[in-house]
Design a protein around this nucleic acid. Structure first.
Lengths: 161, 161
DNA sequence: GTTCCGTGGTTCAAATTTGAACCACCCTGC
DNA sequence: GCAGGGTGGTTCAAATTTGAACCACGGAAC
């Protein structure tokens, strides 16, 4: 090896891509957050929790599984589920076969609230991202970001080693 | 008009794109944040502040302009610049022609710290995003997200009105 | 010169996030 | 049965973010 040579700086194309990524991420997040908060009284994390629970046959998920699915920390999830519990949208239930585990379960009120929030949310997602792009662009984006995400999910090996 | 008809839900392609967008955003952010914190002792917001200042001929920017450039709130910027000031990487300087304005200026230490952090940062950006994609994918991504970002920058008109 | 409104920044409290303890429980090996 | 190590969740304090309230100044109208 030869120590650290001159780093490979980003060229203009790459820089543009990087900043577009950051900017779009920030702006879209802000937009979605805003819409959900004012129209449905939910934060985006809270909304996503409800979605994940609703996607499940019995409307419940272990805290740990939920945290992994949402790419959040355990303590972060504990907090948000606590908030949703206060709102009566989610309840906690212990696991019969494993006393350590806790299931978050969607209440009827939670399912109803999600139903009310969903149309506005998808509309916002379309306005911010989906409907702004051509189908080809969207497919390309999904492909590229899917690759990026997949690569970061698994404990990555550097390409250079 | 006919009130709200059945909302246009996302089809599988669209849903995949949306989730890839969210997932990649979260994971890449985490990665970048992590790298900067451990290797340079800076948060990503702090690093970006230094970058913006260094990009300027005299290494200084008004607080408001800086806040706009970083897509952050005024109070958020006040806080982070305060942190950087504590670290001696940035200083505040009043504006001679407008007593309300405050300039954030990069100190020598700040410029040096940025210089030390940059190589590791670009390497992380390459590992997480740039080098993972083919040039074609990257171009497509920049194009798509550039469109998204541009559209959200300006106070948007809904496509349907 | 004096209102009056808009801009530039800061301050404040409240909400959220993070990561490091921490506790309780499961499981394996002895 | 019992010691260890690992997993599942919560708790805690510290850092950060957010938005509203606030203060001071600049600029235009009169």
């Amino acid at each position: 090896m030869d120590g650290m040579r001159e780093p490979r700086w980003l060229n203009d194309e790459e820089k543009h891509a990087w900043y577009a990524f950051l900017t779009a991420g920030a702006l879209v997040n802000r937009q979605i957050e805003q819409q959900l908060k004012t129209d449905a009284g939910l934060s985006h994390p809270q909304y996503e929790i409800l979605v994940r629970l609703a996607d499940t046959p019995d409307g419940s998920l272990r805290m740990t599984d939920l945290a992994n699915a949402l790419l959040t920390t355990k303590s972060g999830l504990t907090y948000q589920v606590g908030q949703l519990e206060k709102l009566g949208l989610v309840a906690r239930r212990g696991c019969p076969t494993d006393d350590r585990s806790v299931f978050a379960v969607l209440t009827d009120a939670g399912r109803e609230r999600l139903g009310g929030a969903a149309p506005g949310h998808v509309a916002a997602v379309r306005d911010a991202l989906v409907d702004v792009l051509t189908p080809a662009q969207l497919a390309c984006l999904a492909d590229a970001l899917g690759t990026v995400a997949r690569r970061l999910q698994s404990p990555g090996q550097s390409p250079g080693t």
